Computed example of a mutant assay.
Amino acid sequence: MSSLYLAVLIAFFASTVTRVFGRKWSMFDGGLTFLVSATLNNMAVNLLMLILDRTLHDIGVGFANQSLPLYLPY
């Protein structure tokens, strides 16, 4: 199973988090998850840690993407 599919299953609830807590906390959660994944990537010593890193990275991007379309110019 691809780590992207696993991240999509978890980040599926990003819209609910954004609706309940607001865009500010959703963007904060996305940025924090992205920073944790970058730290985990630097400390990775085996394949499982890299898969967890990629999953956290995709979740962080998903949460940030849920919040940012309002601020992007079209």
Rank of each mutant, 00 (worst) to 15 (best):
S37C: 08
H57I: 04
R54Q: 13
W25P: 03
S2A: 07
G62E: 01
L52Y: 13
L32R: 08
T16L: 15
A38C: 10
D29Q: 14
G62A: 13
T55Q: 02
T39I: 12
S15I: 10
L72Q: 01
F21R: 07
G62Y: 06
L47R: 08
S67K: 09
V20L: 15
T39S: 12
Q66C: 10
N65G: 11
L47G: 03
V61N: 04
Y5S: 05
W25A: 10
I10D: 01
L52R: 04
G60R: 04
I51W: 13
Y71Q: 09
L72H: 00
S37H: 09
L47W: 07
T18C: 09
T39A: 14
T55N: 01
F34V: 08
L68K: 04
L52N: 08
A7I: 04
A11Q: 07
L6E: 09
V45T: 12
N42M: 11
L6V: 10
S37P: 05
A64L: 09
S67V: 14
Q66M: 11
T33A: 14
L40A: 10
L47V: 06
L35N: 02
Q66I: 03
G22P: 02
G62R: 02
I59D: 06
K24H: 08
N42L: 13
M43Q: 02
V20I: 15
Q66H: 06
L72P: 00
S67G: 14
V45E: 14
V36E: 10
D53L: 09
S3D: 02
G60P: 05
L56W: 09
A64W: 12
P69C: 05
Y71L: 14
G31L: 12
L35G: 02
D58G: 05
F34I: 11
T39R: 07
M43E: 00
L56Y: 09
S26P: 01
